[in-house]
């Protein structure tokens, strides 16, 4: 029997319509059609330059689409700002405010998402294990934390205020093995217990197949594969990426 939450995932959260992005007439992304249902954990894989970050940036309206558009929960992201209240993201360190301590950063994000200090405190206390005693209560500025610890702060910050869409670019990179495992558990439990739609890109095929219900492979801006994750998916992906080796 399927858990209850899965039954509610019929409606579509994100739709992509003839989307393309070019820089100086060189096309870096072209997705004719893509629909992501509510509550799905969606994995995006591809080599460098495949267009993963470009896609996420378009989704957050950080760059202008050359053609087409994305709608998020019925809102066209490049035409309205109404997608912002239910969307959160951590793409890179430019999503952190260097001169704040982790707590101050969480409170700030919390306030923007309608959470007061005690809400935020209750929320982050769940992740004490994830932070491994290196982040909270140290009064250190984010700019002085190691790359890995910065990432942890950014990832948890993206979950504050129960957003409906969470976009994470390369969340496993720079994390130590224990934290990688913890992060996988965290994403899995979030997708099982909430209706949050997760969009995750990764170079790590093993991790991404473990946490995603669906995997899309991008290559040179095109969708090459669109798979529902099953025990064979990892093998399929590995063989796909080693073929690229043989061709070269």
């Amino acid at each position: 029997m399927q858990p209850l939450s899965k039954n509610l995932k019929n409606s579509i959260m994100i739709t992509v319509n003839n989307l393309s992005k070019s820089y100086n007439n060189i096309e870096v992304l072209n997705i004719a059609e893509l629909a992501i249902p509510k509550g799905q954990s969606f994995g995006l894989v591809g080599n460098n330059g495949a267009g993963k970050t470009t896609f996420f940036s378009l989704l957050l309206d950080l760059i202008r689409p050359t053609n087409g558009y994305i709608t998020s929960n019925g809102v066209r992201v490049d035409a309205s700002e109404d997608w912002k209240p239910f969307t959160s993201a951590f793409l890179d360190e430019s999503f952190l405010i260097g001169y704040l301590t982790p707590e101050e950063y969480f409170y700030f994000i919390g306030k923007l998402r309608g959470q007061n200090k005690s809400d935020v405190n209750a929320f982050i206390s769940q992740y004490e294990g994830f932070f491994n005693d290196e982040i909270l209560g140290k009064r250190k500025f984010l700019r002085d934390l190691s790359k890995g610890n910065q990432k942890k702060v950014g990832l948890i910050g993206a979950l504050i205020g129960a957003p409906e869409i969470v976009i994470l670019d390369e969340p496993f990179a720079n994390l130590d093995p224990t934290t990688q495992i913890r992060l996988k558990q965290l994403i899995k439990s979030e997708t099982e217990n909430t209706h949050t739609t997760f969009l995750i890109s990764s170079h790590d095929l093993l991790h991404v197949t473990e946490v995603s219900e669906r995997i899309v492979v991008l290559e040179k801006g095109q969708v090459i594969k669109d798979l529902h994750t099953n025990p064979e998916t990892l093998k399929e992906l590995e063989s796909y990426f080693s073929e690229a080796l043989d061709v070269n």
Partner: peptide, 11 residues
């Protein structure tokens, strides 16, 4: 330095 955050947050 964190403009992308501000632009994607509910601000």
């Amino acid at each position: 330095q964190y403009y992308k955050l501000l632009m994607s947050q509910n601000i």
